[in-house]
């Protein structure tokens, strides 16, 4: 058996469906950091849409499924603060009255990490070998920031990317207006929030926007695209894994052109 931490990758439903290259970037980063990565096939979604819609029965059933799928791994890592927060912070809350499941949920919670903070805080990664010429700004997605304390870690690694300059986004800690089902339940309010965020992104002068959550990225990219703003939007893992040359989110696949 090869040595190293045995990591189960929680791909997340959005990465699976929309942008698999984020998953492959995560695998590359984890393997370069000395982890053995597996992808349990029994995973689908973390159940957050049910949980936040008040559907506790379905959220609990989905949580059981995830807990079972990731038994036995040293670590469970997801390229998303939001899904990680669901596994790490909220699963135990679902099983408050069930001692055996609560223990299993707390065990999963202890083993679960958001990708970038796992690389720095657990694997001790100090630098990456990647190149990305451009002026980059970073949005702190809410769950990663406030539930998990992800703030310095992505900035620290981004500063080691060759050619990359980082400029702080005004209001980086303000919600982008995605909020899962919120954005389609209350579209008018969501758009107002997203428009403010898009304006801040453009005002930062950056040519690339990065963040650690695909939901927020799709939302911000969608608004920037609707506004005709020429800002490339990518998941931070893509740039750290030196995969920043692929078309950005919302860019045509065929032309393979970069906006940078």
């Amino acid at each position: 058996m090869p040595k190293g931490r045995r990591v189960g990758l929680f791909v997340t439903c959005l990465v699976d469906l929309y942008r698999p290259q984020i998953g492959f970037a995560a695998v590359k980063l984890l393997e370069e950091a000395g982890c053995r990565v597996e992808v349990p096939r029994l995973q689908t979604c973390c159940g957050q849409p049910a949980y936040n819609s008040g559907d506790r029965a379905d959220a609990t059933a989905i949580a059981r499924q995830v807990i079972a799928a990731f038994q036995g791994f040293d670590y469970v890592v997801a390229p998303s603060g939001s899904c990680t927060g669901m596994l790490k912070v909220h699963y135990p809350a679902l099983f408050a009255g069930d001692a055996a499941m609560l223990e299993a949920a707390e065990d999963l919670s202890r083993r679960t990490f958001e990708l970038i903070s796992f690389l720095t805080d657990v694997c001790g990664l100090e630098a990456v070998e990647a190149t990305y010429p451009g002026l980059v700004t970073y949005h702190d997605s809410c769950s990663g920031l406030r539930e998990l304390g992800v703030k310095a870690q992505p900035r620290h690694l981004l500063q080691t990317v060759a050619g990359l300059s980082l400029t702080e986004l005004p209001g980086a800690e303000t919600c982008c207006g995605f909020g899962g089902t919120f954005c389609v339940k209350y579209p008018a309010i969501s758009e107002e929030m997203t428009q403010k965020k898009a304006a801040d992104i453009v005002a930062s002068g950056a040519d690339t926007l990065l963040a650690g959550d695909l939901g927020c990225l799709l939302n911000m990219a969608g608004r920037l695209s609707r506004n005709g703003a020429r800002v490339a939007v990518r998941h931070v893992a893509e740039v750290l894994a030196d995969q920043g040359g692929e078309p950005a989110i919302g860019e045509p696949a065929a032309k393979k052109k970069s906006r940078r």
């Binding site: 791909v11 990465v15 699976d16 469906l17 929309y18 942008r19 698999p20 290259q21 998953g23 492959f24 695998v27 597996e38 992808v39 349990p40 096939r41 029994l42 799928a69 579209p187 008018a188 969501s190 758009e191 997203t194 428009q195 799709l218 939302n219 990219a221 969608g222 608004r223 695209s225 609707r226 989110i249 919302g250 696949a253």
Partner: peptide, 27 residues
């Protein structure tokens, strides 16, 4: 109504992972 919907790249991660040969032998 207020934003474009970025298009998926066409294949899911799990599909690609399995066909890449990496997924074999996993639970």
């Amino acid at each position: 109504r207020g934003r474009d919907m970025p298009a998926p790249s066409g294949r899911t991660f799990h599909d690609l992972w399995r066909t890449s040969g990496r997924g074999r032998g996993e639970a």
